[in-house]
Amino acid sequence: MGRAHKPMSESNDPAKRFGRRTTLKLLGLTLTGSVARVAGAPAEFEPVQVPRPAVKRDPAIPRGRAWRLRPLATGTTPRTFSAAEFTALGALVDVIIPDTDTPGACAAGVHWYLDDVAGAEARVRDQWRAGLRRLDAQARAAHGRPFAELPEPEQIEMVTPWASAGTADVKVDNAGQPQVTGAASASDAVTPDDRAFFAFARAQTIDAYYKSEMGQIGELEWVGHEFNDEFPGRCTHPDPLVHSRPRWPRSRG
């Protein structure tokens, strides 16, 4: 059985979740662009070159609290998807947003939420179904097992070509439907449908995950909706990235 069906109490335990994953698979699959400085950076920022750490984390914030926040949705039996589809769904959303030092998509209840969304939107449901079926079929063809039962490195290896479409190639239209406009994929095994599906799945997963308390507050550390007497906006919050810059533009008024 895939991770998706593990009871919430288990996945909420950071000690158990951590370390179970090999970090190897997580390295090297980062398709996101590098964050190197652009050549055209404005002159006033030049004097201070702050090398950006790979992942900047404020040690003052206990990241472990993210695990104690609520998932967006929970459930016992999927209402829209079959057991096989739901298992594949859970595995896929966890590949897209895995557990790190904060909960991943399944821990945040994204798969339960998406089950509910798909129940209300037939187009969304059909797109998930068709895509998840292809995902499982391809996993069986290559490894003899459904996608959710593959070890994580193999899951990642499998979806990497599916994720190869850039944003220029796939656009999500107003109805939430990805439209593939680019050229055919480098790999013949991966069809434009697969790439469109992955773009769709990623958009749905991101949307749901960052709406959850675990995503919004636990991962992004959102703060706000507090009453303030003033809003000086002078970057008064303590932040080395900003305040170590001697020539940071100050308020004129």
């Binding site: 699959l29 980062t30 662009g33 790190t100 994720a163 944003t167």
Partner: peptide
């Protein structure tokens, strides 16, 4: 939400 990729890299970039 429009950046490419998935996994830890996606999560960290969004953050």
């Amino acid at each position: 939400g429009q950046i490419t990729g998935f996994g830890r890299g996606l999560k960290d970039t969004i953050r």
